[in-house]
Amino acid sequence: MHLFLKTIYKIQHACVYVSSFFMAILAVSVFYDVVARYIFDSPTIWANEISIYLLQFIVFFTMGCIQMEGKQLRVTFLIERLQGIPRKILEALTSLLILPYAIVLVVYGFKFTENAFTLGMGSPTLLEVPLWIPYSFICLGGILLAVAAVCSVIKAWIPQQS
C-alpha cells in the first residue's frame, strides 16, 4: 500500500511542478501583454486566452496535491482537539466528503470534453484552440482530487513512520 501512496504522491507532485512552470509562463505573458498594451499601445491577441487556459490548468491540477498534503483551507478547531481513533474517523470523514465534489468535476468535465470534441468546438478567437483541451483539465483535475481524497483516507489509518 505504501508503494501505491508513493506513486500517487509522485504523480500529484509532478502536476504541481508542471503547474509551477505554467505559473511562470503565465506571469511572463501577462507582464508582456501589460507592457505591450500600455507602453507600446499594441495589445496582444493571444495573452488573455493563454492566461485563462494556464490558470485553469494550475487550479485543477494542483487540487489533488493540496488535498494529499493537508494544505487546503479547512476549519480545524475540532480535529485539533481530538486524539487517536476519533481523530482518524473525523479526518477520514472530511476527506470522504470531498468525493462528491470530485465526482461532479469528473462527470461534468467529461461531458463537456466529449461534447466539445464531438462537435469540434474551438475558441472564438484567432487562436481557435480546440475547447476539448481546456475542458479536459476539469475532468482530469477531478480524477486527481478523487484519488487524493481516497489516499488521504488511507493515510489517516496508516501508522506514521518517523
Rank of each mutant, 00 (worst) to 15 (best):
V107W: 14
R81V: 07
L119Y: 12
V30N: 01
V30F: 05
F21P: 01
R87F: 00
G84N: 12
S95H: 15
F112I: 10
I158G: 07
A148N: 06
Q161A: 12
Y38H: 09
G109C: 08
C65V: 00
M68D: 13
G70R: 07
A36W: 06
I39C: 11
F61H: 12
G109M: 06
P124A: 11
A116Q: 00
S95P: 08
A27M: 15
F60W: 09
Q72S: 14
P159M: 05
A14I: 06
G84Y: 08
K71L: 10
I58L: 03
Q161K: 13
A27W: 06
A102E: 02
M63Q: 10
L126T: 14
V75H: 05
N48Y: 14
L131M: 14
G64V: 02
E49N: 13
I138M: 09
A27K: 03
R81M: 10
V35K: 03
A24Y: 00
A27E: 00
F60T: 04
M121G: 05
L140H: 08
E69K: 15
F112H: 10
V104I: 13
D41Q: 13
F31Q: 01
L105I: 08
L93Q: 01
V16H: 02
I89C: 09
V35N: 04
E49Q: 14
I154W: 04
L55V: 15
E80L: 00
H13N: 10
K111C: 10
Q83F: 07
S19C: 03
Q12R: 03
V104R: 01
A149H: 06
F57D: 02
Q56A: 15
V107C: 09
H2T: 15
E114S: 13
N115P: 03
I103T: 12
V59F: 13
C15K: 01
G109W: 04
W132P: 05
S42E: 13
V30K: 00
K88T: 15
C65M: 00
A14W: 05
L127D: 08
V150G: 03
L90C: 11
R74T: 09
L93Y: 11
P86M: 08
E128G: 00
S29E: 09
D33A: 09
I85W: 10
I25A: 15
T125R: 04
A156K: 02
I158M: 13
V59D: 06
S42L: 13
M68V: 12
E69G: 11
P159R: 06
Y108C: 06
A149T: 08
I58W: 02
T62M: 03
A146N: 07
T44G: 15
I58P: 03
L119A: 07
I52C: 00
W132H: 12
I52Y: 05
P130N: 10
